[in-house]
Nucleic acid binder design. Structure first.
Lengths: 153, 153
DNA sequence: CGAAAAGGGTTGCATTAAAAAACCAAATAA
DNA sequence: TTATTTGGTTTTTTAATGCAACCCTTTTCG
């Protein structure tokens, strides 16, 4: 049966998963952040089936995460580039990568460093308004009127 | 054919997606962060099919993201709780939620606030070692020896 | 006490999506 | 000109999803 869509769950997470929550989309986006732009390069670096890659790229373009640009002088030669919305997934990608490294060890030899200084980037954290790090136990989900909804953690 | 496993892509993102990258797992985890612990409550709040929920919970337990605890005096009454590894996905969940809200608007009325102060939490950001925010254009992926691999962005 | 409901699943079946490979057309390269 | 690259689409097989029905054990209610 049709894969359940999450639109009806009025939840931002569900909404995000509709756009980038399937098995390949985040890997395509990560690869794009590494500088990959052409169809064949995505295909070869990820080992993804061509039809799936087509489908994912189309869907990412539809959702405004990537754009398809014709970069040929007289003909068709496409590049897929991240939009601002796509580049803004950087935080999610890094958070996921760091989580995986913390709990499963480093699976790849690549390291993420600041371009200017060469120093490794810091661990991504949820912070309070004044900058202190917050765990899930230190936050609360509240409704519009500020009343606590459920206990987190 | 068998869904491609990402283990062979020696990539931390791929590894993370193997554990929590399918359609339902992250929603189950988010719901657990809201305080849900019992099977039926997951089922009803998410509207997930029971067999799929069984499968996801088992897999999350296998991967050490959740634990199944028998909380009955004389019989069986289970609770599914996040482990430390699961709670550590908080950063990922919040980053994804904030991304979705920035680009698609707020889909739910819930707000995430600091428990102690009641103030909304800050936007999650990737930061350099000295604390300044970094975009994808300001970082570099380097190999073990520090040589630049590919251009990010 | 007995009946009914709730909790935590498992099983079967229809539908759909994924993977692989073959095929295709336009544009380059040799 | 012929071969190859690029960016796809089509076809076929296999796995996953969703739904409903069923099951067994505990609680709860009359």
């Amino acid at each position: 049966m049709t894969r359940k869509r999450f639109d009806d769950l009025d939840c931002s997470i569900a909404c995000a998963l509709n756009e980038v929550g399937d098995w390949w989309s985040l890997l395509v986006i990560k690869q794009a952040m590494l500088g990959t732009r052409r169809y064949v390069d995505f295909q070869q670096s990820l080992g993804i089936a061509k039809n799936i890659l087509c489908d994912r790229l189309s869907r990412l373009v539809e959702n405004g995460v990537m754009t398809r640009v014709n970069v040929a002088e007289h003909g068709t030669r496409y590049e897929y580039r991240l939009t601002e919305k796509g580049r803004d997934l950087f935080t999610v990608i890094v958070a996921l990568r760091q989580w995986s490294e913390r709990w499963n060890g480093s699976k790849d030899t690549m390291q993420l460093v600041e371009r200017a200084s060469g120093a490794p980037v810091a661990q991504v954290e949820v912070r309070s308004a004044d900058g202190s790090a917050l765990s899930v136990r230190e936050v609360l989900f509240v409704g519009e009127n500020g009343e606590p909804l459920e206990r987190a953690g």
